[in-house]
Design a protein around this nucleic acid. Structure first.
Lengths: 146, 146
DNA sequence: TTGCAGTGTAAGCATAGCTGACACAGGGAG
DNA sequence: CTCCCTGTGTCAGCTATGCTTACACTGCAA
């Protein structure tokens, strides 16, 4: 059914996705530094995206939402706290509940990062047609639901 | 147009793609080790995918095909040579042309890895509909053409 | 002959996953 | 009441995969 020699359409899906992530990430970082922000990574943006202002959750909960281990999330959260973007205070019965929340600076950073990501998607929609991008989102969401 | 509160459909596209890559990668590695192969990474599989039997190209050319720097590709190629999956011989006028080729073991490994990747895509097609997966491939290919 | 462009190679840095380990709190089983 | 199991926070180490910087070498062209 499929040819064996078309380099692009025959490449493994995983390779295509990896390339997409890499290109998208690069562009994200460029625009972020254009906006005068250097110290944030896409992963950090992902963390911020899972936090809502007025919401305080545990690191473990964040890890669940982002679908990574709590150790991985812990490192990201620690760094973001160090940059003053998140606050952390122990809840009642400490190790069982901690309250991670956005600081005002964190909310600002979150808005900036998510805005850039949204811009990138809009531009992708301009290039490919917004239906194609919407289809991409839909398929990826269905493929690996939370 | 889009709601602001659906965790999955509203997540940044980049986050969705990252999650997909991670899940796909995990599954790929599991099946690879099920098949008795431990020492290969998705990146290595990507390298192998760009090599055809009977074809000998330079590291720089491989890097171009995979869209990474030649230094990055050099490291992957070096490792694959160390595992006996690739062979390397200097061509005429050495630094200008090197001939990287698949060894028999490399071809076997390539077939195994690509087979697993293809299986994963087929299974994804079973879950989501093969048109959805085809659309995914098409959109990703168009979004970041080689 | 001189210099530029393409290549191979080495070294160092950063990110981002993972697993393993250990301490601590709380709730239930006995 | 005591003991254990579960969920959490946290530290440490490993691995993979990108990147940049840097240098040596060849071949071709000016």
């Amino acid at each position: 059914m499929a040819d064996e020699n078309q380099p692009n359409t025959d490449a493994p899906l995983l390779a295509l996705l990896q390339r997409g992530v890499r290109h998208l990430t690069d562009e994200f970082l460029v625009r972020l530094s254009d906006a005068g922000v250097a110290s944030i990574t896409p992963a950090h943006a992902a963390v911020l995206a899972h936090l809502d202002a007025e919401e305080a959750v545990s690191t473990a909960e964040l890890a669940r939402r982002a679908d990574v281990t709590r150790q991985t999330m812990h490192r990201a959260v620690t760094q973001l706290i160090g940059e003053g973007l998140l606050s952390s205070e122990p809840g009642p019965g400490f190790p069982r509940s901690t309250r991670i929340a956005l600081t005002p600076a964190g909310q600002q950073r979150r808005d900036l990062a998510l805005g850039i990501l949204r811009d990138l998607e809009v531009e992708l929609g301009d290039r490919l047609g917004s239906e194609a991008v919407a289809g991409l989102r839909a398929t990826m969401s269905r493929a690996w639901p939370h």
